[in-house]
Lab assay of single mutants.
Amino acid sequence: KYFGTAKARYDFCARDRSELSLKEGDIIKILNKKGQQGWWRGEIYGRVGWFPANYVEEDYS
């Protein structure tokens, strides 16, 4: 189950295995919004990890 999707506004390079690298334009499935302050958990291309919420724009459609 996921909470919708978000589109990456910027590139983000994961610093460890718990984080999710993003490329601008990627569409991420949002799995959890209750991580550390400002971090969401998501899935993209079969990978799961945490990413900074301010790097994405949530899709409300």
Rank of each mutant, 00 (worst) to 15 (best):
P52S: 00
A53D: 04
S21K: 04
A14T: 05
G35F: 06
G4P: 14
E58S: 07
S18G: 10
L20K: 03
A8E: 03
K1Y: 09
F3K: 12
Y60H: 14
E24M: 14
I44M: 08
I30D: 02
I28C: 06
R41P: 04
R15T: 10
S18N: 14
P52Y: 00
T5H: 12
K7I: 09
K7Y: 11
I27S: 08
L20V: 04
Q37N: 12
N32D: 15
D26R: 00
R41L: 14
G42W: 00
N32R: 09
G4I: 09
K33S: 04
S18Y: 11
D59R: 08
R41A: 07
D26L: 02
K23T: 09
F12A: 05
G49K: 01
Y55L: 15
I44N: 15
G42T: 02
R9N: 08
V48M: 08
R47L: 05
E19Q: 12
G49N: 00
V48D: 05
D59C: 11
P52D: 01
D26I: 04
G35D: 11
E24K: 13
K1P: 02
D11F: 01
V48N: 05
F12G: 00
F12W: 12
A53G: 06
V56L: 04
P52E: 00
W39F: 07
Q37P: 14
W39T: 07
W39A: 04
N54I: 07
I30Q: 02
Y60S: 14
K1N: 15
C13E: 15
C13D: 08
A53P: 09
D26N: 06
K1R: 04
R47P: 01
Y10G: 10
E58F: 08
D59I: 12
D16E: 09
P52I: 08
E57T: 14
A8I: 05
I30Y: 03
F3I: 15
R47Q: 13
S21R: 03
S18P: 02
I30F: 02
P52F: 00
I27H: 11
K7R: 13
W50A: 04
Y45R: 15
N54D: 15
G42V: 01
Y45Q: 15
K7L: 10
E19L: 04
Y45D: 15
D16A: 09
Y60F: 14
